[in-house]
Each structure stands twice: as C-alpha cells, then as structure tokens.
Computed example of a mutant assay.
Amino acid sequence: MQRLLLKFLYVMAAIRYPQYRGDLPYFIRDNWFARLNQLRFVRRDYLTRKPYKVISFQGEFDQELRYCLPFAYWHHRNGTLKQTIGCANTKPFYYFSENHTERYTERIWQKGYDSYDVPNMTHSPTYDFGKWTPPPFKSHYRNNLFVYNKPLLVIANKYNIEWDRPPVNFLSIDALDRLISRLKRTYQIVYNRPLSGQIVLDNSEIMDLGEHAWLRANHPEVLLMNDLFEQYRTQVANYNHLQLMVYANADRFVSMHGGTAALASYFGGINVILSHPGGGFEHAFDEYSTLFPAFSGAKILHAKSTEEVFAYVDQYF
C-alpha cells in the first residue's frame, strides 16, 4: 500500500510542479507522504496529549536543524515529548528534552532519507509548519560571558568534501582577509570552523584550510572559536554549547551552505549565506526565501558567489 501511495504522490508532484527536473518530485513526494503519515497521531497529539513521542536522529546535522529539532520542540511545547535520542554532544540543542540520550558517535547521512516519522523531512517547495517550532536558542542561551566592546559578528566557515567533490562553499584565506579587514573596526569578529575532533562527523570529510594559524598571525583581533573553547572549557559542556552561547549574543553572521547556514539562521539578525549554484536543492526549491527565514525571523541574504558576499556585507553590515 505504501509503495502504491508513493508512486501516486510522485505522479501528483510531477503534475503539480512540471518545471522541476525528474528527480526533484521524489523529494516533494516524500515530504507529502511524511505529512500524511502524521494523521496516525491525531488522537495522541491533539486529544489525549500525554508524553509518548520518542524522536531519534542520526542523520546529517543540516537535516536535524531543519526538521528534527523543530519537530521535537513542538512536541515539547505540546506536552507529548517522551524522549529524544541523538549523537554525541547534542544535549545543548535538546536542552528542552527532559530525557535526551546521546547514543550515536557518528552521523550517517542516509539515515535522514526514507524516514517518514518526521514531517517536512526533506526538501520541498512548501512546508507544513503545523508541527514545526524551532527552539528559541537566542533567548535561552543569551549570556553575559561573551560580551565585548563592539557588537559580535560570527564568520562561520567550512572546508570539507561536498557531494563527494572537493570543497565548494567556503571562504578562502584571501576572501577572509578582505572580509575581516572590512569589518573588524566595527565588529568583534568570532571565526568559527570546527575541527574534526570537536563535532560528530558524517560523510563530509573536514579538510585543512590552514587559516587558524594565519588568522592568529595576521588578524589577532579576531577571536577563534577553537581558542574560546580552550579558554572556557570549564564553563561550557562541549563545543556545541559554546557555539550556541556565542551565537546567541550575535546579530550578524556570514555562513556557508549546509548545517553551518542553518545554525546561524536560528539567531535572528542578518545572515549572509554563501551557497554556490550547482549543488544542493536549496536553490531549486528557493528554501533560502521560505524555510531559512522561518527559523527565527532572520533576514537571509543568499550570496551565490564570494563577490556577492562582499556586496551584501557592504550594504547591510
């Protein structure tokens, strides 16, 4: 029965969205089926409303931020969340869960697909926000520890394999030099690019950009998240906890395609996202205009090239 319904939904998606190439209706089909699957829980979600929902996730960090966390927080607010299960060091993201277990030591990207337990579990031109409430990270983690004489600006870079190809969406050392030189007089910049030992990895191998030593030598005014982690080890639970605390005090972000961009979009303000065309389905489904602003009401500026990053920074920062 499920296979027949999935085939039917694919045909309907292809008819409804004829402008999309042939593989994209599969995502829409899965999104629709995940929403329909929620009909099984109408009684428990809206009538009895007792804790029953166990949410377990081992997929990509990006998907966890997009779909799983808002679903879990909705159940928390609804009074129906029983337990959450995730990867190591994820408790700060699930601070609202009274029973969170860090079961997994690695992320498996395939785990996020062919799973219909969470609505909106994949890319789509439209989303159902009925059971989708992003946790208010900014208000929860705002603090007096990371306060400086100038407003905080976070540059959230990455340099890793993307879609089994060399790095695509990242700021080079030359680009960082230009960006920091432009902004450091106005902002206290925090540079964030987690190393492999600080986060749970998936299929995206982290590579060596060599920028941390270069930043210390050429822009000592910039605070490195890696250095802050060493400095405040006794005051933060883990690297994710540190990220949340620093981000909560910032209103300006420059971030990269993927989980880096999704996390920065949770904290309001303005987030310039570098996401080159030709990789990722956010472009095809216009998700930087639909999904990403919904995380916190942040102003999302989608830069399709490094030059557009500079243009947005000049205009809005």
Rank of each mutant, 00 (worst) to 15 (best):
L6M: 06
L24H: 02
I28S: 01
I28G: 03
N31K: 12
L39P: 03
R40Q: 14
L47Q: 06
L47K: 09
T48H: 11
Y52Q: 03
F57L: 00
A72Y: 05
Y73E: 02
Y73V: 01
H76I: 04
H76C: 08
Q83S: 04
I85F: 04
C87M: 13
C87R: 02
C87Y: 04
Y95T: 07
E98T: 12
N99E: 07
E102W: 05
K111G: 12
G112P: 07
Y113D: 15
D114M: 14
M121T: 07
T122K: 02
F129W: 10
T133Y: 08
P134D: 00
S139L: 06
L145M: 11
V147A: 05
Y148C: 13
K150A: 06
L152K: 00
L153A: 01
I155M: 04
Y159M: 00
Y159G: 00
P167V: 01
D174C: 07
L176V: 10
D177C: 11
R178F: 10
I180M: 03
K184F: 06
Y187G: 03
I189L: 14
I189Y: 08
N192V: 09
L201R: 13
I206Y: 07
D208Y: 14
L209T: 02
A213V: 11
W214V: 02
L215R: 07
H219E: 09
P220Q: 12
V222I: 09
L223F: 10
D227Y: 05
D227V: 09
Q235C: 11
A237E: 15
N238V: 03
L242N: 06
L244Q: 09
V246G: 05
G258V: 03
G268C: 04
I273P: 06
L274D: 02
S275Q: 13
G278L: 05
E282F: 14
D286T: 02
S289Y: 11
S289V: 10
L291D: 07
P293I: 09
S296K: 05
A298T: 03
F310I: 07
A311E: 09
V313A: 01
D314L: 04
